[in-house]
Design a protein around this nucleic acid. Structure first.
Lengths: 243, 243
DNA sequence: CGGAACGTTGATGGACATCAAGGCTAGTGG
DNA sequence: CCACTAGCCTTGATGTCCATCAACGTTCCG
């Protein structure tokens, strides 16, 4: 157990109890640290031979563009998250990744990843776990867009984000900082920016949650959970599942 | 290369070139074959210590229930697909699985799976690949619900299903058999059954595709692909990615 | 100071849900 | 063999949630 583990190592460690060798292998993935400015995509839909990244600081989002010009944001990534796994596993990327803020991330080449899997195979299992958690989030997102109305959906989104940020120490039960614009929110929630604005106002006027000036303040957690039908079990679990 | 591989082995083999030992390990997962009647759930949301299954014949769907009583179908599974991976990796299941038709599937216990990963570690990597492909489908589904209108969405769904069935030899470019009711379609597409009916009629009247009596007949593939903005690269790729 | 990006609010319209009713088919029991 | 039921499909009428269009305010930064 090293003194200072990366958030990423901590995340994998939640699934598989890691040996010293395995932790070292993870650390090696952090060798090539890079900076990216906000707004310029770092992975493009259709591009081949992309790298993946481990996010150290800042926020990113992964999205898909449709021919109509609209886009759908699939997920936001926060520190400790892995970016662009699918772009590496498949030769060509099926989505874009855009930094929402300036960000710092370690580049992971396809060869790095496959080598790591072959040298420390339990890390492949750990990654499978982490990827499955990500999939669970996408699924929850899908359910929200398919069957929740705008208000429930927005509430659910804010709650999920809060829960995730709390897990990496970037938020509390009562609130968190959030650099997302209403336009980004709209593209994630499958709504128009105008409507997002109205919904946020309603939520604020009803005393449930305030999202203003880059900060989310949760006023009535219970009511919000009830409204959103939020169940956080898919995000959390206790202790490594594989010894 | 054995003479008769299971569809599941074939699928994993598409990602990782499999050795004889690895193929044997996969075959062992098929030991406990079971039958399930249509309509009765085989995995329940919230249940713990579930098994996973490899689907041999028949169709299933995985879905989530909301407190309002509505449901969202996340995906349909067809022969060769793995059911309930997340129910096994996490101790408690975050979704339900319902057989759409009568089906035949091999039960895979959590211990079977972890043992397989530890004995033949490259299979963990292969599963990661397969899970990522599934995630790509869910993502595409999310994009559809978020940003495509009912007609585009329905067209996209029918095309994706066709492409998947074709990969396992259950369909051609011109059509396939499909046991899904309009109610199931509605729950998958995030629409009402009534509206699904209207959309199907429009698609039929425009000479694009006919879905009647359990059969989908594609009349104008190009027009359909154009309408749905369908790009099948996320489903397909050529040759094993890991030698 | 001027412009860009974002937030806010009102007015209008459309896509889709909901309600309602009826038809078709297959299975069931008298 | 025919009533009866249960699913599923089909179509029309009405309503609503949210998109779209338009305009203006605010903040920030060059």
């Amino acid at each position: 157990m090293t003194a200072l583990q990366s958030p990423f190592a901590r995340k994998l460690g939640a699934f598989v109890a890691l040996s010293a060798t395995e932790i070292t292998a993870i650390d090696k993935l952090h060798a090539r640290k890079k900076q990216f400015p906000a707004g310029r995509d770092i992975v493009h839909q259709g591009q081949t031979n992309q790298s993946a990244y481990i996010l150290a600081s800042g926020w990113a989002c992964s999205y898909k563009l449709l021919t109509g010009g609209t886009r759908q944001i699939v997920d936001f990534q926060i520190p400790g998250d892995f970016l662009g796994l699918r772009s590496v596993l498949f030769r060509t990327s099926d989505h874009n990744i855009e930094p929402v803020t300036q960000l710092e991330a370690s580049e992971v080449l396809a060869s790095d990843l496959l080598e790591t899997f072959s040298n420390t195979p339990r890390l492949a299992t750990a990654m499978l776990w982490a990827a499955s958690r990500d999939e669970a989030m996408v699924v929850e997102h899908l359910v929200g867009i398919g069957r929740r109305d705008a208000k429930e959906r927005t509430a659910h989104f804010l709650l999920e984000l809060g829960a995730r940020l709390k897990l990496v120490g970037l938020g509390t039960t009562s609130g968190y900082d959030c650099p997302l614009s209403q336009y980004l929110l709209a593209d994630a929630l499958g709504l128009s920016a105008v409507h997002v604005n109205r919904v946020l106002r309603e939520l604020r006027e009803e005393g449930l949650v305030t999202f203003q000036h880059g900060h989310v303040e949760i006023h009535d957690l219970d009511a919000l959970v009830l409204l959103a039908d939020f169940d956080k079990t898919y995000l959390d679990h206790d202790g490594p599942l594989l010894k």
